[in-house]
């Protein structure tokens, strides 16, 4: 029996939601009153902004979070390891809305406070996930690599990273979902994203636009999630064997 490729479910769900956010579909809901569906062009523009902001934030978070995670798992930094979990737990106690709101007076309206919130909120989970993924690499694998004379850099590149890849992909999935979600919240700070029709729609009772924004944001999250799941499945060393 052939296995269902990983990520197919979220990808299909995302496509379905994206279709449902088309103005022709969304107009069925909220036909009365102040409902004015967004045009396809406007929706695409907002989606492009959303993707750009979220991708920039995700890139920063990945670079910093995974980089710091790699540093923290080196033997030299072992004494600091205990504080990472505590710090991560406490960093999660500040919700993203609050980070966006606090950055607003400092950075002004628009993209910058959103990007700052994205980074501040995303780093600790990514760092913790990276550390967890690298910790899951077995001691035996590391010791055998050492025994055949690999340098620490080679051990990292040929043993630790490939073995930790599934965990790292999981971490990136979390970071991606956070990025899409915080970017939507950024609409409150005046960033022009898919959250904008939701926030504006709540204020002026534009139900159709609210629906479109919500469905498109969710579609984006599911599509990104599905894409990463598919990449993760493709990276899996035994996937060809499993598919036969």
């Amino acid at each position: 029996m052939r296995r269902i490729p990983p990520g197919l479910g979220p990808l299909l769900l995302g496509l379905g939601l994206a279709v449902a956010s088309h103005p022709a579909v969304a107009a069925f809901f909220g036909q009365e009153g102040a409902s004015r569906p967004l045009t396809v062009g406007r929706l695409a523009e907002l989606a492009l902004n959303h993707v750009t902001l979220a991708a920039t934030g995700l890139a920063v978070v990945t670079l910093l979070g995974v980089g710091l995670g790699l540093i923290a798992t080196r033997a030299r930094f072992a004494p600091f390891r205990g504080s990472i979990d505590t710090l991560a737990a406490f960093a999660q106690a500040v919700p993203p809305v609050v980070v966006v709101a606090l950055a607003l007076p400092v950075l002004g309206f628009g993209g910058p406070p959103t990007l700052l919130a994205l980074t501040a909120y995303g780093i600790m989970p990514t760092l913790r996930g990276t550390v967890g993924a690298l910790d899951a690499v077995s001691v035996e694998a590391r010791q055998s690599a050492q025994a055949i004379g690999l340098t620490p850099a080679q051990i990292l590149a040929y043993v630790e990273l490939p073995l930790a890849a599934p965990g790292l992909i999981e971490t990136l999935r979390t970071a991606l979902i956070l990025a899409v979600s915080v970017t939507a919240v950024g609409a409150l700070a005046g960033a022009s994203t898919l959250g904008t029709p939701i926030v504006a729609g709540l204020q002026n009772q534009n139900i159709a636009a609210m629906f479109q924004g919500a469905l498109a944001t969710a579609a984006l999250a599911f599509l990104g999630d599905g894409l990463l799941l598919a990449i993760g499945g493709w990276l899996q060393p035994d996937h060809r064997l499993a598919a036969v």
Binding site: G30, S181, A184, G195, M210, F211, A218, A221
Partner: peptide, 22 residues
């Protein structure tokens, strides 16, 4: 559910209930 951004879920809930009410 975790994949759906919170702003989107709240927006969709409000929109769905208003559509139901109308």
């Amino acid at each position: 559910v975790q994949v759906v951004p919170a702003v989107a879920l709240l927006g969709a809930l409000v929109a769905a209930v208003s559509a139901l009410l109308s």
